[in-house]
Write a protein that binds this DNA or RNA. Sequence first.
DNA 1: CTAGACTTTCCTGATT
DNA 2: AAATCAGGAAAGTCTA
Length: 371
Amino acid sequence: MWESSDLSAILTSANWAVYQPGTTEPAAAEPCTGQLGCPASSHVGSVYDVLESDKWYEKPPQHWTRGNILEWISHHVEESQFDARALDLASCSMDGPTLCQLSRDALLSTFGSLGERLFQNLLELKAQYGEGDLKMTCDFFDSLFEGYPEILNVSGGDSSYGLLTSDERSDVCSYAQNGVKMFGDMTPSSDNGYESGRTSPGSLDNSITGALGFRNPNSPSSLGSDSDQDLTEEPFPNDTEGELKRRRGRPKKRSLGTEPVRGKKNKYAARGTHLWEFIRDILVHPEQNNGLMKWEDRREGVFKFLKSEAVAKLWGQRKRNSSMNYEKLSRAMRYYYKRQILERVDGRRLVYKFGKNSSGWRDREVGFYGD
DNA sequence: CTAGACTTTCCTGATT
DNA sequence: AAATCAGGAAAGTCTA
């Protein structure tokens, strides 16, 4: 079984590089439209890429190390909020070629419901890199890595390919196909608040992965680092260095035991995150939302909270506000009526409807660029 | 510095 | 009775 520490360690290493402000490697510096979506051409073309890359999303699955595979799995665990405790760590230990040989059934039996997701992503990645083209070069590096494993130091991992396509009818297969296109426009630019999305691959990562619970443990950059471990209520973490930023909104009345944490570094944990976008992003990724919400009428933009408190907790996690609850979240939702980001749906509890000032949730917006 | 946008927190009262 | 819904009010962060 995976210990939380395993996962956390993996995630830490997996995310660290991505959020390093100073060491923004290609992963972050290159607007490669998201990991899974990284155009094959930008990586396949040069063998140096292969040499330099130690990240799973920057090289073909055939060349993943055990570490890469763990990162890849943990990425999907995070993205889908899969309960990793059900996984057997040992069964995750394999090299790229072995992984690539696994059948769908094998993945399903090993990883349960996560298996389908892994399988589809693997298919897509293999197709993306071309299973044959690099064969020779890769074989060469295989042997090289074999001899110098330290070249492939752990790190890497990443972020958000999770935002793949997602029309409720299209399953993981289609998202694999469209994922590449997605990133450019996942977050609509016409947002009347802060600039959301599009600030950098990192911010996009932050937006969606945060939305879906992808943590960014120990991120020294603090740009949106979330540290809660799960949906369960958790007091503010004891940030050592990076104190919690002061939250927006009216301060809570002093609570009994919880001294307000004085904020010093005032980073933008919440930057680029608007509640309605957070909600939207959960909705447009049905394969990842774990039944938190559902569309009642996708065409009309009508949706419903299925697990209102869980969504609120997630939102709180996103904003690093452990006291968020549905009551408060819903208040914020109601403010959207006036701005016509949401429209009222009378008489139906937990049901809301996107308004004309919202965007990014329609099929065409999700599947294609823009509108 | 200021104003406006946004979110959070609190609250009272109504509805389901 | 417990959840939700409705909004007003206040207060704080952020951006322009």
